[in-house]
Simulated scan of single mutants.
Amino acid sequence: MRSVPEAVPETVRETVPEGFEEAYRLQRARFPAGEPAWQPVHTVYVPADRFTARTVADWGEQALSLLKAHLASPEEMAEVFGVPGGLAALVHDKVLLKLATEPVEDLRVDFEDGYGLRPGPVEDGHVDQAVAAVAAMSDAGTLPRRWGPRVKSFADGDPGRSVRTLERFVMGVAERAGGLPDGFTVTFPKILMESYLGQFARVLSGLEAELGVRLRFEMQVEAPQTLAFLRGDLNESLGGRLAAAHFGVFDYTAAIGLPPQEQRLDHPACDHARHVMQTALSGTGVELSDGSLAAAPASDRTLDVHVLWRRHAELVRHSLRHGYYQGWDMHPSHLVSRFATVYAFHLARYDSYRERVRAWEERRAAEGGVMDEPATIRTLAAALRRADMALP
């Protein structure tokens, strides 16, 4: 018979294992706890040479025009986007309100793929043009809640051009606007070497010293090589400057050799990449964003507009189901399908989620006899908070 051990002395039970305090400090710094913060549901990309102080207003007006011309009633909203009939009128009204008041939540002035290669003086001129537009929007109160440039990749072999554009843009806006307006971030694409991240963070550190503000950036995951150096301490190694990781569907699918017709956001290879991103960065405070649909309506005919909206809505739903609550929009038509799909997604289960949280708080089974685990309740509460922040 096994002997019963003596009671563990109080002094032993209270002893903290060697190294625990440092490990716990690292845990809290690396994986900060907290409720979801506001995150834009999309990022709108506009080539720098086409960006003006009217861009956001123009996108909103074009999207509203498309909505009124091709989706005039809640019934059409229900049919095109598969919105439950009871929600169609509410979703329709919310999309109209959003397009009229805040059509763009996050704006990126693109100096990379959407812009292309230009002679140095030409790009300098477009930087100055963008600076003037941003300053005018800031003065008018029309600058989106998030905004900034996407600069060229160091992988192109010319980091000087990337840094010059960033510095000219940031310092120019700060001078014209009397400081850097809230919501600034910069997107850093095609990171094929981990060392590029540290180099870019040091560039930001130098600008911080001049401006007296904290600067953060988004990295783009556009190649299989990038997945290899995603990990929980990545943001920590960059001085906390990594704000987000955005998936680049077309560069990624091209890099792994998929045929052109399979370069799509809902390909299983893209699911794998996004899940690696989630696994590596979960709990670190680094936001995640999905990519885009590179298509516009084939014509102004209602049939073609509806075909585009249905396909975009499928991709947005796919992202949402996989826990990606942000994506890229590349055309004004995408605003309609983005907001309609996001709002329907959040509203469809909002009441049932709230009932389950209340049942838990009241120590009773929810409707249907559901008895939730604590982790599920945390997920439900996070979903409700995310919905409250996303809905207008």
Rank of each mutant, 00 (worst) to 15 (best):
K94T: 01
G86S: 05
A78V: 04
S73V: 13
A78P: 00
G82E: 01
Q62C: 05
K68R: 15
Q27G: 08
Q27Y: 11
V41H: 03
R50F: 12
A69M: 03
H42Q: 15
G86C: 03
A57K: 02
F51R: 00
V91C: 09
S73A: 12
T43A: 05
V44D: 04
H70A: 09
P74S: 12
Q39S: 14
P84Y: 06
G86T: 01
A37L: 14
A53E: 15
T43W: 06
E75M: 00
T43C: 11
G34K: 10
V46K: 08
L96K: 15
H42Y: 10
A88P: 01
T55K: 06
R54S: 14
T55L: 10
L71F: 06
D93W: 00
S65V: 05
A33F: 07
L71Q: 13
V80N: 10
T43K: 03
V56W: 07
L71V: 10
A29F: 06
T55W: 07
A33P: 07
P84F: 05
K94W: 13
R30G: 00
P47I: 04
P84L: 01
H70M: 02
G60D: 11
L71M: 13
D58V: 06
F31G: 03
V91K: 12
L64G: 15
K94C: 05
V56E: 13
D49L: 01
R28V: 08
L90Y: 02
E76T: 11
P74Y: 09
F81Q: 02
Q62P: 10
D58F: 05
L96V: 11
A72D: 15
A53R: 13
Q39K: 10
L87C: 10
V80E: 02
D93M: 02
H92D: 13
A63N: 05
L90G: 10
R50W: 10
E61D: 15
H42V: 06
E76I: 02
A78G: 12
P47H: 06
V44A: 15
A53K: 09
L96D: 04
A89Q: 13
A37G: 14
E79V: 08
D58M: 03
R28T: 12
R30N: 08
L67A: 10
Y45P: 01
T43R: 06
V56I: 09
R28I: 01
H92C: 03
T52Q: 02
V80Y: 01
H70S: 11
E76S: 08
A63Q: 09
K94Y: 12
D93V: 00
A89M: 03
R54D: 15
A72W: 05
A89C: 03
K98P: 12
V80K: 07
G82Q: 01
K68N: 09
A33C: 05
G34R: 09
K94H: 13
V44C: 14
W59R: 11
V83K: 02
A63K: 07
Y45Q: 06
G34Y: 09
E35F: 10
L66I: 09
G60Y: 12
P84R: 07
A57P: 04
K68S: 11
E75C: 00
R54A: 14
V95T: 12
L67N: 02
S73E: 15
L67K: 10
R30T: 12
E35R: 15
F51H: 02
E76H: 03
L97S: 13
H42G: 08
P32K: 04
L71W: 08
A63H: 06
F81K: 03
P40A: 04
L66E: 07
V56C: 10
R28G: 05
A63R: 08
